[in-house]
């Protein structure tokens, strides 16, 4: 038994040693060390992941971790000081600001890209050509009676409609329900939910009678599997695209997305370097992963806000639809 125990111990020791040994072959370019903890929205995840990957090439010793918990789930961790940066696909809420203040945690709000929340159907869906905001509201409002496609327009098939949407911890859900149903979180509850937009893509791609919504990037990645629905917000149907999101004609589902940085963490050099790297490389990486970059001026404002440690929110609880983002930032 003793030998057995020793064998076991040495086995465990070996495992640990091999695990340690792996870190030896890192190429060293900058010797900056430290940890940057990011969590939050799955909508923003592709951007932060891309930034973290590029950042790691130059600062291999800084350990950047990125989690996916949804905007709300991420803020729950952020307001108790567990993370340095929160990815958010909507502005921070009043209740979250309150909790943060109670815990003595502040934030610098930095818009980093535009997203056009995309309403999509299956590729084999040949009847939907566009939807009006009123029809979306009819489908998604709390207590909605829409069970079949024909409940929306009588000429559409009498087949059950299968709805897919982000979970209630998601900022995308908050934004969509506010824009379509008039109140954040007010929505029917009998639809398939996931905080991970990829799951929604898979669900809609495999179901002819499905309808769902999520961030523009996830549609961009899957144009071969999904069909995007042009939305009529009162001025004729507009489909989300880089152009229509950028010039503000895709309404009301265009929105800025954010990162929230803890000023306390920004005192650490690795966090400061990471955020500046983020803002410098956002214009090119944002486009690469399928979102729309902000105007250059907006990133300049971001850099200034970050440098001057301007805390507080310019977007929380305010009507910003139709306003130019650089003007909002300038006014702040």
């Amino acid at each position: 038994m003793k030998r057995l125990f020793i064998t076991g111990l040495s086995l465990a020791g070996f495992l640990i040693l091999t695990a340690c040994g792996n870190s030896a072959n890192n190429k060293s370019i900058s010797s900056l060390t430290g940890t940057v903890k990011v969590d939050g929205s799955s909508t923003v995840f592709p951007i932060t992941e891309a930034v973290a990957e590029e950042f790691g090439k130059i600062y291999p010793k800084v350990r950047v971790t990125v989690g996916i918990s949804g905007t709300g789930g991420g803020f729950k961790k952020y307001v108790i000081g567990e993370t340095d940066i929160n990815d958010a696909s909507r502005p921070i809420k009043g209740s979250e600001i309150k909790k943060a203040t109670e815990n003595g945690i502040e934030f610098i709000e930095l818009p980093i890209a535009f997203d056009g929340l995309s309403v999509v159907v299956n590729r084999a869906n040949n009847w939907v050509d566009q939807l009006t905001v009123a029809e979306l509201n009819l489908i998604w409002k709390a207590g909605s009676h829409v069970q079949q496609w024909s409940d929306i327009r009588p000429e559409w098939p009498s087949k059950p409609i299968h709805l897919f949407g982000p979970g209630t911890d998601s900022g995308t859900f908050d934004y969509f329900t506010e824009a379509i149903n008039g109140k954040a979180q007010s929505c029917r509850s009998d639809f398939s939910k996931s905080e991970d937009d990829n799951v929604l893509v898979q669900g809609i791609a495999g179901d002819r009678y499905a309808l769902g919504f999520f961030g523009f990037a996830y549609y961009q990645e899957n144009t071969d599997k999904l069909k995007v629905v042009p939305i009529d917000g009162g001025k004729g149907p507009v489909a989300p695209s880089v152009t229509t999101i950028n010039d503000g004609s895709y309404q009301p589902l265009s929105r800025p997305i954010f990162i929230y940085v803890k000023p306390e963490s920004a005192k650490r050099e690795e966090v400061r370097t990471f955020v500046n790297f983020y803002l410098d490389h956002a214009p090119e990486l944002v486009g690469e992963v399928g979102y729309v970059a902000l105007p250059t001026e907006a990133y300049d404002h971001d850099r200034l806000r970050f440098k001057d440690v301007k805390t507080g929110s310019l977007f929380s609880g305010k009507e910003t639809i139709g306003l130019k983002i650089e003007d909002i930032l300038k006014a702040g």
Partner: peptide, 9 residues
């Protein structure tokens, strides 16, 4: 809360 993107050992 083990993480999704971790690029270090």
């Amino acid at each position: 809360g083990a993480l999704t993107y971790v690029a270090f050992v």
